[in-house]
């Protein structure tokens, strides 16, 4: 499976993260998104006329839209990441997959503006981002009151992976994560999963490894 990938793209990171968590091997094809704008070049537009990445190619199959790619990876390799057959759970997975699109436009838009100098109404993007974070925070509080640690179930699903990257990288767009305790606990639970990988802007949880014994040279 070949992923057209940009290391700084949270949407591409969703796919890399999902693959890492489910043990799927990806062949990464780096795209010069910044500063080269290669995603808007003829070769990639031929694969995805929307001019966006990620794009996943598996044999003759070409998939775009990160949520669809997450579902594809999970269905192939680890069905427990999909919704089970309970109606509420199925609906909640869809709810947060749809919601993740709003994170992309709001927090993602603010991040592109603040970091990579893309145009946009930064005040509006940040305000929309804060509204979305408050919704997620409230959703996670309710889940925890129902005894569930993740957005759709008591186990992580594709919906968590769809929401996590833009939320974790909100500060890149000038939106603080300080006011959201439930998001902090959820983010920590995801970052502690076996096989979790980071992207630039999300630091390693160094506490997951014990403090090393350090040999001193010429101190």
């Amino acid at each position: 499976m070949k992923l057209y990938d940009y290391i700084l793209s949270p949407s591409c990171y969703k796919v890399r993260l999902m693959a890492a968590l489910t043990g799927v091997k990806l062949d990464l094809q780096p795209v010069d998104f910044h500063p080269g704008l290669e995603h808007r070049g003829p070769e990639l537009l031929a694969l995805n006329p929307a001019g966006s990445i990620p794009i996943l190619k598996d044999g003759d199959l070409i998939l775009t839209e990160s949520s669809a790619i997450l579902v594809y990876l999970a269905a192939k390799a680890a069905a427990e990441w999909l919704a089970g057959d309970k109606p509420e759970e199925a609906a909640r997975v869809q709810q947060w997959l749809s919601f993740s699109g709003r994170l992309t436009t709001s927090l993602g838009g603010a991040r592109l503006h603040e970091m990579l100098l893309r145009p946009g109404d930064i005040d509006a993007l940040q305000a929309q981002g804060i509204s979305a974070l408050r919704e997620l925070e409230a959703g996670l509080v309710e889940q925890s009151l129902r005894g569930r640690r993740f957005v759709a179930a008591d186990r992580p699903t594709v919906a968590d992976i769809a929401c996590f990257p833009y939320v974790a990288l909100a500060p890149d767009g000038g939106v603080s994560l300080d006011p959201y305790p439930a998001i902090r606990l959820w983010s920590r639970a995801l970052r502690s999963l076996d096989g979790f990988i980071e992207m630039p802007g999300i630091h390693r949880l160094h506490e997951l490894k014990p403090e090393p014994l350090i040999e001193t040279g010429e101190a």
Binding site: D178, H203, L205, H206, E207, P210, E211
Partner: peptide, 17 residues
């Protein structure tokens, strides 16, 4: 320091540990 990490009984800074 709130961006740091807790190991055992100590709080560490994320920048230089």
């Amino acid at each position: 320091l709130s961006h740091g990490f807790v190991r055992g009984e100590a709080l560490s800074c994320i920048y230089h540990g």
